[in-house]
Simulated scan of single mutants.
Amino acid sequence: MFQVETFIEKPVIKTAEKLIKEKRYFWNSEIIYANSIQLVPIFTRCKLTCGS
């Protein structure tokens, strides 16, 4: 996991183009490829540490 400094939700096209050119940003595509055997322990651990 990574610590996130800033999150930009749906940036305007000019900002998105700038971020792509700089090549030091990550994009959250929200694609999760896993089964419940893998996810349940992760979500349980996150709930315990994140307090959600």
Rank of each mutant, 00 (worst) to 15 (best):
T6K: 12
C50V: 02
L19C: 04
T44Y: 04
E22Y: 04
S52D: 13
T6P: 08
K47C: 04
K10P: 12
Y25F: 08
S52Y: 14
V40H: 09
S36H: 12
Q3R: 13
E30T: 12
S29L: 09
T6E: 14
Q3P: 05
S52Q: 11
L39R: 10
S36N: 15
I20L: 06
K18F: 01
T15F: 00
K21T: 00
I32A: 01
K23C: 08
C46I: 08
E5S: 05
E17H: 07
T49V: 14
K18S: 04
F43Y: 12
I37H: 11
I42G: 02
W27R: 07
R45C: 12
N35A: 00
T44Q: 05
I31D: 07
E17K: 05
F7E: 14
M1W: 15
K14N: 01
T6W: 09
A34L: 06
E9G: 06
N28Q: 09
L48D: 12
P41A: 05
T49D: 14
N35L: 04
I32K: 01
F7Q: 14
F2M: 15
S36Q: 07
V12S: 10
K18P: 02
T44I: 03
E22N: 02
G51H: 10
G51C: 03
T6G: 06
I42K: 12
I8H: 11
F26V: 04
K47Q: 13
N35W: 07
Y25N: 05
L48W: 08
V40A: 07
A16C: 06
T6M: 14
F43M: 09
C46W: 14
K23G: 15
K47M: 06
K18M: 02
I20T: 04
P11T: 00
K14W: 03
T44H: 05
I42F: 09
A16S: 06
F2H: 12
C46M: 08
K14S: 10
K18H: 00
L39T: 15
E22M: 01
F43L: 13
K21M: 11
R45Y: 07
T44K: 04
S52K: 14
I20C: 11
E9I: 01
E30L: 09
I31V: 11
K23P: 02
F43K: 12
A34I: 15
Q38N: 11
A34K: 11
C50E: 01
L48S: 12
S36M: 12
R24L: 13
P41D: 15
F7T: 10
K21V: 01
E5Q: 10
L39Q: 05
N28V: 00
T44G: 03
K18G: 00
R45E: 05
I32P: 01
R24I: 15
E17F: 03
I42N: 08
I42V: 15
V4L: 02
I42D: 05
S52I: 15
M1F: 12
T6V: 12
C50P: 02
I37T: 11
V40Q: 13
V4A: 00
P41W: 08
K10Q: 06
E17Q: 08
R45N: 09
V40N: 10
K47F: 09
W27K: 07
A34W: 13
E5H: 03
K10D: 13
E22T: 06
N28S: 06
Y33S: 00
S29I: 15
L19N: 02
K14F: 04
K47I: 06
T44R: 02
G51E: 03
K10C: 04
F7R: 15
L39H: 00
K14P: 00
S52H: 03
T49P: 07
R24M: 15
E30I: 07
F7L: 15
V40M: 10
